[in-house]
Structures are given as C-alpha cells and as structure tokens.
Design a protein around this nucleic acid. Structure first.
Length: 427
RNA sequence: GGAAGGGUGGCCGAGUGGUUGAAGGCGCACGCUUGGAAAGCGUGUUUACGUGAAAGCGUAACAAGGGUUCGAAUCCCUUUCCUUCCGCCA
C-alpha cells in the first residue's frame, strides 16, 4: 500500500515508477480523490466543532436551570444533524474509494532494478557450481521417480485431481530430509527463528501481504471464509501485524516449513507433468522484519542464506536480478535463484527473495519504535524461499541420477536419510 | 456447540449520559534537592488525520462496527477476542 502523502509530494516520481511496471499514470486520479476527501473532511470537522460547542451550551443552560434556552439550542443542533450524517457517510465512502484504489497498485521498483517487460529482461548476477556431466540422456525427475515406483501421480489424481503427487518410501523420506536440512541450516548457521504457524488465515491477513484483493483467484478459500496460505510468507510476515516492535529487536528473522496451496489459475498447460507446478507443495520460507536502513543489505544476506542450501546440496545455480516487469506485486527488488535441471536442460526457479520496503507494513500496520526520537515508523519486510522443497527434490533427482535409474543421495542428506546412500538400491 | 462474566492510556485501575482525552497509582522523561545516590518535591508523559512556516488550533479514537441522544467510555444492536464452567475432540 502506498502512502498518499508521498504521492502528493512527488506525483511524477510515482507515475515514473508505475511506468517501469508497464502501468499507466495514476497519480492525478488518486490526488483528485485525495483532494475531494480532504475538502469533505474539513467541512465535516467544522460542523462537528459547531455541534460540540452548542452541545456544551445545552449542558450549561441546564445547569443554570434555563430550560427554554436549552431547548432553543437543542433545536439549533438538531438542524445540523443532516449535514453531519451526510458528512460522515461521505467521508467513509471517499476514504474507502481511496483505499480501494491504492490497494490494487503494485510496489514501486528500486532504481537499481533493471528495465524490462518480462523474464527476458532479467539480469544474471552470478553463477555457482557446474553442470554435471552425463554421457547419456539425463531423465526428467518424474521419469526417475515413477520408474523407481517412489513417485505416483496417478494415485494422487484419483483422489485429488491433477497437480498433486503421492511420494512413497525413500522419496517421501527425502522430502522430509531436505526440509530438515534446510531448517537446521537456517536456525543454526543463519540465525532464523523456527515457527509453526497457521496455514488457514483470514481476509485481512491475506490483505496484509497483498494476496488480496487482487489475487483472490490464485488462492483456495475455505467454506468458512478463510484462505489456505500460498506461502508461509503470509503467516510469518503477519506475526507483526498491528503491532509495534522495539528497534533493538530488529531484524527479526523467521522461518517455517509449511505446505503451500496455489490454485494455479493462470497456469493451464504449463508444467503439467511432474512436481514443478503443484496445487500443494512444501516450502521452507524465510522472512525478515527490519528497519528501513537495514532492509537492502538484509536482502543480500537472505539471498545468501538460500544459496547456502543449494551449495550444501552441491546443486549448480544462477542468481537472477528480476527486471521491473517480472517482479511480484509487493516487491521493490527481487533475486530469483534458478537451479540447473539436467533432465529439462534448463535453469528453473527454486527461490525468490524480495524486499518489500514498507509496502506490506502499511497494509498490516506493522511498526517499530526507534531507539532514539519520538513516535513510530513502519518496518520493512522481506521474504524468500529457503527453498521450495518439492523443486529441491526435483533438482536432487535430476542432478544425482545414475545411468541405471538409481539416484545417489547427496552427502549432506545421508544422515537425514538414516544412512541411505542411494535411492533404488534398497529392494 | 451451550451457559456466565469480561475487554478503559506503556502497565495497574477508577469511571452508568454533560469542561472525562479520560481520576488515582506504577513506569518513564526533565527539573529542584544531594558530595553522589535513594527518598522527597515539582513539571511533563497516547495516537491518527486535517490545518499552519512554526507555536498552535480543530476533528476522531475507552475491543471493532452500527444505532439512540442536543450530548455516550457510560444506554441499545451486531461482530470479535479473552476468562470460567459444560459438551465434543487429536
């Protein structure tokens, strides 16, 4: 959510930011509503002042025992009533109108964000590791998984429809092993606090992180009006909603391992096979709550924390700085981590780390109390995948596959796998 | 799900229609006092929006939203959260 005062101060800058996202200018529309609202408010307040003064006089007259005078003033105030009711209603409507307009406008990219309309405009920042060499045609993960009879899409489809999977035996365990490895690294080496959070949340929680109102069709809604979280970012970030934290406690670094639910409404026909795009997948999420001064550097740190997982697993990847047109709604700057998938012969997104500035904080009313100075300021929020567990499983399968159809378990995962060193080696 | 009782400022806690934005206490800040400290004394201590160069002024806010009234923290309705008891339950 944008600050209308900031737009008032610099409408041209605001419109220029929108233009980088491929959007038409909106400042004049917004400022017209804002001006109308302020006029209304001023008139309303003048009427309220008059009512307050007269009401006080009624009290005084009553005390003095001057009944006729009191009645006369009462009649005078009664005449203001229509104007008051209308003014209050008008103020409510115009404020609603302004908020509605503001709540569907995306965040403004930082200056350093590259220009571009879509993923072709993204810029590679760095690369780690190397593509593994195969002297045969490497298979895609679902071929590997189905041949081993550890991955079953048909059974999942029978009970839930497309875009679900059943994992079995060592494959199910590897899912869990990967998540545990991630949590252990983030909580011990990276200083994140592990959280267990609600996976069903309210409208205003979804509004806070900006899934609502604009992206309702991408989400699953329960019959009692709650929403299944599409990412633990929603729950973790909203832990500070409507609260004031101490500056000394910042940055807050939170992590959670949760299932994520996405309707994938706009993805018909894309990634229909395999585990790349599912209605349900698990993810270890990273969230930081910082001061405005800390947030930019925190993004580098967070991205590094996510990279540490890929490095521990020995997976080749590249870091992409997203261009303005490819960034998510709430982001000011995003790094995507793309892991190499030999079976697909392509880099695929496995993590997305974003700094949102005060965009979500305003929606949630999340503030902090500075150590020095008066008042409160909005916090900055960041979120990143650390990492998507399902896609990490995919990457492990494709990168560690052997010619005989088995899969070598990466060294760091062996302890989490109860000592198993190879999938397919056990009868 | 049923019954009962509650939600007041950073905290505790008064307050059932008229200078109550809100007594009192605690905490905190500043000052006085002191060799220094404690105690004591004094002053101050919410937020949002509007307006103004600023000082300031205005409006709103006593869980949230509506209503009654000239006037509401105080009365009515709805929602929500908490506590206790009962029921159900992993």
């Amino acid at each position: 959510m944008h600050d209308i005062k900031a737009i008032r101060d610099n409408p041209a800058g605001f419109d220029a930011g929108l233009a980088r996202r491929g959007l038409a200018p909106l400042s004049s529309t917004l400022l017209a509503i804002d001006g109308e609202r302020r006029d209304l408010l001023q008139k309303l307040q003048e009427t309220q002042t008059k009512r307050n003064e007269l009401s006080k006089q009624v009290g005084d007259a009553m005390k003095a025992g001057d009944k006729p005078r009191a009645e006369a003033i009462k009649a005078e105030v009664a005449a203001l009533k229509d104007a008051l009711t209308q003014g209050e209603e008008g103020e409510r409507l115009i404020t609603q109108k302004l908020n509605d307009a503001l709540s569907v406008i995306p965040n403004i990219p930082l200056d350093e964000v590259p220009d571009g309309a879509d993923e072709h405009g993204n810029v590679e920042v760095r690369r780690w590791g190397e593509k593994p060499a195969f002297n045969w045609e490497p298979r895609q993960h679902f071929v590997i998984g189905e041949r081993l009879k550890l991955m079953d899409f048909e059974t999942a489809a029978k009970m839930a429809g497309a875009r679900f999977v059943v994992l079995k035996k060592q494959m199910a365990r590897m899912e869990r092993a990967i998540a545990n490895l991630m949590l252990d690294i983030h909580t011990s080496a990276n200083g994140y606090t592990e959280c267990y959070v609600p996976m069903l949340v309210s409208d205003k929680t979804m509004f806070g992180t900006a899934q609502l109102p604009k992206f309702a069709e991408d989400q699953f809604r329960t019959t009692d009006g709650r929403w299944l979280i599409p990412t633990a970012e929603v729950s973790l970030t909203n832990t500070v909603r409507e609260s004031v934290v101490e500056e000394a406690d910042l940055p807050l670094r939170l992590t959670a391992y949760t299932p994520c639910f996405r309707a994938e409404a706009g993805a018909a026909g894309r990634d229909t096979r395999g585990m790349i795009r599912q209605h349900q997948f698990s993810k270890v999420e990273l969230v930081s709550i910082t001061t405005p001064e800390q947030s930019r550097a925190e993004l580098e740190r967070m991205t590094g924390c996510a990279e540490a997982i890929l490095q521990a697993l020995g997976l080749h990847y590249r870091v992409m700085k997203l261009c303005a047109g490819d960034m998510g709604f709430g982001s000011r700057l995003t790094y995507d981590l793309e892991v190499w998938l030999p079976g697909q012969n392509a880099f695929r997104e496995i993590s997305s780390c974003s700094v949102c500035g005060d965009f979500q904080a305003r929606r949630m009313d999340a503030r902090y109390k500075p150590t020095e100075g008066k008042g409160t300021r909005f916090v900055h929020t960041l979120n990143g995948s650390g990492l998507a567990v399902g896609r990490t499983l995919v990457a492990v399968l494709e990168n560690y596959q052997n010619a005989d159809g088995s899969v070598t378990v990466p060294d760091v995962l062996v302890p989490y796998m109860g000592g198993i060193t190879k999938l397919g080696a056990v009868k």
